[in-house]
Amino acid sequence: MPTDAKGAEPGGRAAGFALAFASSIGLGLAVAVARIAFEGGTDGQSVATVRAWFVVLLVGLWCVASGRGLRVDRRTWLHCVGLGTLLGYMFFGNIGAVKFIPVGVAALLFFVYPPLVAVFTAILDRRWPGLLRLTAFLIAFGGLAVMLGVGFERLNPVGLALGLGAGVAAGIQVTWTSRVMKGRDSLVVMFHMALTAAVVLSVAVPAITGLTPPATTLGWIGAAGVVLLQGCSIPLYFAAIPRIGAETSAIINNLQPVTSIVAAFLLFGEAMTASQFAGGAMVIGGILLLQLAGRRG
């Protein structure tokens, strides 16, 4: 994948790997902890809105403390507006799906994004993906079909739409980011993306569903956990991309659904069905094969 070779910053690979690993573990834990927040009375829209403003505050302070200027040129700002709108949906969809479907299924649905990044890249580069990549696509999407095909009627369609929608949004955003943000400070870009996402959610959520705070102490703990885990992890992921590239970041990010599934089992005793486990293994296997194909290419 061209973005991996062109997007990596020399000398920053060790830091990039550390950032990507920390981000993946934090994001995986956040998906599982979200269930505690929802059982405590809050909802995905409310958590997503608070989390967006937390990211704005965190990244903004980080930029100021490190001496970065927050001003960007008009073209970069317009890109940030588009990317931030997608980020707002990702903030909501990835976590919001957990209210309607099992944690493991929600985590794996989001991981439609790595194959989509490869598809979008092949289309934009106007090149045939190759037999190995094509096989990886078929395995990953076949796994998704297996995971959802058996017992599909028992899975809430709202949760499925939120989870898959977040994955599609991530695929578009990662492709977009890796192509137009080269040479720009990733933290400053992240600040403007998060600010856009926060403004969009702050307008849309009160108007459509309203803000719903947790009703129990445990709900507040769960909501705070999601905000802290995702709020700290998302900037780390975007900071890793320019250091090790979009493809390598996506490989490491495969730890996210594994972390979510293990955490859901430990916290709630939530086990996946045999078909969901088999489908999830196919999804992860297809993603790893896709990354191998990119390396060989």
Rank of each mutant, 00 (worst) to 15 (best):
T135E: 00
R133A: 13
L124P: 05
A122T: 13
A145G: 13
A145C: 09
R133Q: 14
A145Q: 03
V117Y: 04
A140W: 06
G149H: 13
R154C: 00
G149Y: 14
L138F: 14
R127A: 13
W128C: 01
G149S: 13
L131N: 01
P114D: 02
G151N: 08
F152S: 13
P129R: 01
V117L: 10
I139W: 01
G151C: 09
L132K: 07
L134T: 15
G149C: 08
R154G: 10
E153G: 15
P129W: 02
G142W: 07
R154T: 15
R127V: 12
V146F: 07
A136C: 10
W128T: 05
D125I: 00
F141L: 12
R133I: 01
F141C: 02
L131G: 03
V150R: 13
P129M: 02
L124T: 13
P115G: 06
L134H: 04
G151V: 07
M147N: 09
R154K: 14
A145K: 01
G130K: 05
G130A: 04
F120L: 15
A136V: 07
F120M: 11
F152P: 00
F137V: 02
G149W: 13
A118M: 09
A122R: 11
L131F: 06
V119W: 09
L148A: 08
E153V: 12
V146K: 02
G130P: 05
L148N: 08
D125E: 15
L131I: 08
R126L: 06
G142M: 10
A145R: 02
P114R: 01
P114F: 04
V119E: 04
T121I: 05
A145W: 13
F120N: 07
F152K: 06
L138I: 15
P129D: 01
L124K: 10
L144K: 11
A145E: 05
A122I: 12
V117Q: 04
T121G: 13
M147V: 11
A145F: 14
A136Q: 05
E153K: 12
I123C: 13
F152H: 12
G130C: 05
P115M: 07
L124N: 09
I139A: 07
L138W: 09
F141R: 05
V117E: 05
L138K: 02
L134N: 04
L155Q: 08
G149Q: 13
A122F: 12
L132N: 00
L155V: 09
L155E: 11
D125M: 01
L116S: 11
D125Y: 00
I123N: 08
L132T: 12
L155R: 05
L138P: 04
V119K: 06
F137L: 06
D125V: 02
P114L: 00
P114Y: 03
F137S: 02
G149P: 08
T121L: 07
I123Q: 08
A140P: 08
R126D: 03
R127Y: 02
A140G: 06
L144M: 15
D125Q: 11
W128S: 10
G130M: 05
V119R: 05
V146W: 03
P114V: 00
F137D: 01
L124C: 06
L131Y: 02
G151T: 11
V117W: 07
L124Q: 13
V146E: 03
R154Q: 14
